[in-house]
Design a protein around this nucleic acid. Structure first.
Length: 447
RNA sequence: GUGACCGUAGCUCAAGGGUAGAGUCCCGGAUUGUGAUUCCGGUUGUUGUGGGUUCGAGUCCCAUCGGUCACCCCA
């Protein structure tokens, strides 16, 4: 028979072996636990939304996947003609909040961990895929939003990456209003400001000569001075002083200063965050504080978490003014990069810790009883269900990383005993059947 | 979408125009009940696909598909 070649679609290629999936799930669990620790509430939204919702921000339509049934006919239904896959979690959130405004408690703090899809050219080396997970938190309020919300976000980030134990990281903050004032100060032509911001965004990735050339092409008269200001690393206080010294809009600088001060109050250590004027963020809906987070030892990984403040989340859907602040962790990219850099702990290869070897079919019930007793005591246990030699069952246990094997056959059962084997130390001891739970616990967790 | 490079076993790679190979992985075995290593044996392929040149093509030429990387943009 002609076989269909088992293969994946380019960009839709992030599937893992079971032990990697366990590792990935652990990462999601860690993120979720930290989000909930700060009181964020979970929501999920459908994978597909109406096209006009997704394009409401006037977005990049070529990146959006539209829905279509493979066998589309005359009876084409509404969902498959009007729908498209979400490309982020922020637009669905805006739609969600606009729809359910009366049912939600504000300030609304939600987290959402789901897949999104983008029709861009994938590049695995850059952790860039067509299907990937985002982990978002947002705080949204009606009419106004405390500056404390902007300061709390880095605190959550700090908790998440602190617990991940992936080395020193730096939460870099900036403020859109400050950037705007800077552009004015440096006499950037209004029409070119978006292009200039894109250039400035690359300031720490590209050589100075190229940046300067690009800036001049965009009509920036004092390109060198601007470049120098962006690239000089200063303490938070020094940066604020430098900005004040330039005579920028004091309101903008003051806002940045207040956020920085509040971040400190949230207990985020000075070493873990700082003002970085080169943080720009391409997305134009940010209006205040913006964030990017990078690993100190692996800056080439790029930002592993980014976001910012926006003045009106759902202006396309409702007249209610809904200011908010949020960030997104690109978990698929982060996972692939951490794996590549060897920063992830070696994962368990099985969620179970004990394997009940079935040596002799006559004792099936005893094996099952044993497993039930262990599970009842909270020990994840698997029973080997196939007929196989003891040797092969132990090889299986080894490959899957069980820590304990329970071995019993005619000899043991005749004496009402079971052999409890520690697969790591390769030692074994017989125990009375009724003490099997205690014996396994001791083997797993010590006396 | 634009440009450059690359397609040989599940994976990593070899084969000067003359019969497609190695390592690894996987599977089985090494006398009846113990997972590393070792030893023995085994499956591996329309050489991405389709044409062309040639007595003969994995190798040369053309096309096509796929992949990788850079740019754009982003997580």
């Amino acid at each position: 028979m002609q076989k269909v070649r088992p293969a994946l679609l380019r960009g839709f290629d992030q599937e893992y072996l079971p032990h990697e999936q366990l590792q990935f799930n652990a990462l999601i669990g860690l993120v979720r636990a930290n989000f909930e620790r700060y009181g964020f509430l979970p929501i999920e939204t459908p994978s597909a939304e109406r096209k006009e919702i997704l394009t409401s921000k006037g977005g990049v339509e070529k990146e959006i996947y539209a829905l279509a049934r493979l066998a589309a006919g005359e009876d084409e239904d509404e969902a498959s003609t009007k729908g498209a896959l979400r490309f982020d979690l922020t637009v669905p959130l805006a739609r969600y909040v606009a729809m359910r405004e009366r049912e939600l408690a504000f300030p609304f703090r939600r987290y959402q961990i789901q897949r999104v899809w983008r029709g861009e050219t994938p590049q695995a080396s850059k952790g860039r895929f067509r299907e990937f997970y985002q982990c978002d938190i947002d705080i949204i309020n009606r009419e106004r939003l405390s500056i404390l919300a902007e300061a709390e976000i880095p605190s959550v980030i700090h908790s998440v990456f602190g617990e991940m134990a992936i080395g020193a990281f730096r939460i870099r903050i900036n403020n859109r209003k400050v950037l705007k004032a800077l552009l004015q100060k440096f006499e950037v032509p209004q029409a070119n400001s978006a292009a200039v911001l894109r250039v400035l965004d690359k300031v720490d990735r590209e050589p100075a000569a190229r940046i300067l050339e690009d800036l001049r092409r965009e009509g920036v008269p004092r390109a060198a001075a601007l470049h120098q200001l962006m690239t000089t690393r200063r303490s938070t206080g020094e940066t604020l002083d430098a900005l004040k010294g330039l005579g920028l809009d004091p309101g903008a600088v003051e806002e940045l200063a207040q956020v920085a001060a509040a971040i400190r109050k949230f207990g985020v250590p000075e070493a873990a965050f700082g003002i970085d004027l080169a943080v720009v963020r391409g997305l134009d809906y940010y209006t205040g504080t913006i964030y990017e987070t990078t690993l100190e030892s692996y800056p080439e990984l790029g930002s592993i978490c980014s976001g910012g403040r926006y003045d009106d989340l759902a202006s396309y859907f409702t007249d209610t003014r809904l200011p908010g602040v949020g960030i997104s962790i690109g978990l698929t990219r982060l996972f692939s990069k951490l794996k590549e850099a060897g920063l992830l702990r070696e994962p368990a290869r099985t969620p179970a810790e004990a394997l009940v070897v079935t040596m002799d079919g006559r004792y099936l019930e005893r094996y099952l009883d044993m497993a039930r007793a262990l599970r009842g005591a909270g020990i994840n246990t698997e029973v080997y269900l196939e007929q196989a030699k003891l040797k092969n069952q132990l090889a299986y246990a080894d490959r899957k990383g069980f820590r304990v094997a329970l071995i019993a056959g005619e000899d043991e059962f005749a004496r009402n005993m079971v052999q409890v084997k520690n697969l790591l130390s390769k030692t074994a001891r017989d125990h009375p059947l009724e003490e099997v739970v205690a014996a396994v616990k001791e083997t797993l967790y010590g006396a």
